[in-house]
Design a protein around this nucleic acid. Structure first.
Lengths: 271, 271
DNA sequence: TGATTTGTTCCATTATTTGGAACTTGATTT
DNA sequence: AAATCAAGTTCCAAATAATGGAACAAATCA
């Protein structure tokens, strides 16, 4: 099963192909920008010709995916949020994983994440933490690079070697901290270890003073690679501590995979 | 300003018009369904012809908006979650409102919501609550009918009469509880009161044993009607208590509108 | 094995998209 | 006040993609 693991191939590199692809690319251009975007801003960001872009934008507004303000600038619409809410709350894999995340959190007292690999990034799909953090409902839906996060590297370890190579070829190795992998070479070696050990560490590779231990999960039914992690600040969580937590994290991952195989296995999804 | 208040008009009633509209309609059909949907399921739900639907689905999968499982059934993809995360975390209106919601929560000890009107529904955009509830990160993105919720009725009170009529004409008055409005007539009378008072109550109209007090906010710059509310269980929160909270809720709404007018007012949105 | 259900492909017709250029609008400058 | 410039919108013939009915495959059932 691990060998067949694939990554959803989105085809082209940047601007979407096809009519729908272009529309979504424009949507993304607006959504990823900081503030409201005027027509000219989007024109520059998207590279579409004027006439085309204008029609694309009106269609997106008609669909409620964008909102046009009174000063003619464009903002993300509410429909995106509603669609995402529905797809999140109906996600059966997250549902299966949730109690296991909870249990891991009770054991460790630290933040626990569930993430799924998409292209070269890890998308966080669920999170359990104790104290109210600054931003209220966390970063569900946030995407971080796979190559420098615990869950990311764990998920990468599930990929067949040629697929892994293909993903790494598309990865930009940005040096977030002094510990961040700087090339595919060192990462490939670590992935080898992760395959052997069944768990991965983030040694302050994405954010300074933040460490984690993670384990991979192959989602049954779909060809997705996922993972869970326990994350904590370096001053509170030593590497020794993380090593000690590796076993329960692996065990939780195994339990999630097993339960998922039963509840969302080969047949139709349950009620 | 209240008079110009409009509701994003999505045009047609159900199935999307145009190429993009159809694609999003199909996406929605899959996303709102319970489990993974097989081709035939979607065929029935969407009413599209076979050939068309097949192509539409492949495009959606190509774009990462849907995922196709090994058994050929379709599930929501991760891209939706990522797009929604970006648009939520960059939402400047929510950003402005957040500290005010926090303050209201500290004053009342109950759950505080921020919602925006979209068509006939209220979409919850932010939420502040104390104890960890069952489901972790709440119902951000959830949509509830406007006619039977506090924020919904408050927001409706901002609409110009003809627009309001148009919205109510498209509303299905589902009797959730014994207190739910059963027709536009009684609702219109209450909206009149809400316009006069500046606040609205939900007297267990959407869910039994749940009450709230809400106040409307006209979002400056866009033509959106929004609102905030304090919600609590009937056994803990009396109607008298809600009446007492009405003033601070109105005041918070006013403060949010004022601050929003400055920070995201007529000009470009500053950093 | 034959019947049935489910998913996929084909392709001539039709409708939409494309995108450069002209046009409108509104602000700023001379 | 006229001229200049920038931003947004509209137009339309050519190019392209969507359409959808029907034929085709593949798996499932009787």
């Amino acid at each position: 099963m691990t060998n067949e693991m694939m990554v959803a191939d989105e085809g082209r590199g940047e601007a979407g192909t096809g009519t729908l692809g272009k529309a979504i690319a424009v949507l993304e251009a607006v959504v990823t920008a900081d503030g409201p975007q005027r027509f000219t801003d989007i024109l520059a960001r998207s590279g579409q010709p004027r006439g085309t872009l204008h029609r694309l934008l009106s269609h997106l507004v008609e669909e409620g995916l964008l909102i046009q303000r009174r000063d003619l600038s464009y903002e993300p619409g509410l429909r995106l949020l509603t669609l995402a809410y529905r797809s999140w709350s109906a996600n059966r894999f997250r549902d299966v994983a949730e109690p296991h995340l909870q249990r891991l959190h009770e054991l460790t007292g630290e933040t626990v994440h569930l993430g799924i690999l998409r292209e070269t990034e890890i998308v966080y799909v669920d999170k359990v933490e104790s104290r109210q953090t600054v931003r209220m409902s966390s970063q569900i839906g946030k995407a971080s690079p796979a190559y420098c996060t615990g869950i990311g590297k764990a998920a990468l370890s599930l990929l067949a070697q040629p697929v892994l190579k293909h993903v790494l070829a598309r990865t930009a190795f940005h040096p977030f901290t002094s510990h961040t992998h700087r090339s595919a070479a060192t990462l490939l070696a670590e992935v080898e270890e992760i395959r052997r050990d069944g768990h991965a560490f983030d040694r302050e590779e994405h954010e300074a003073e933040i460490r984690c231990v993670a384990a991979p999960i192959a989602i049954p039914g779909s060809e997705l690679a996922a993972g869970i992690s326990v994350t904590g600040p370096a001053y509170r969580v030593s590497m020794e501590q993380l090593v000690a937590w590796a076993a329960p994290v692996r065990e939780a991952a195994r339990a999630i995979a097993e339960e998922a195989a039963i509840r969302l296995g080969p047949g139709r999804g349950g009620p």
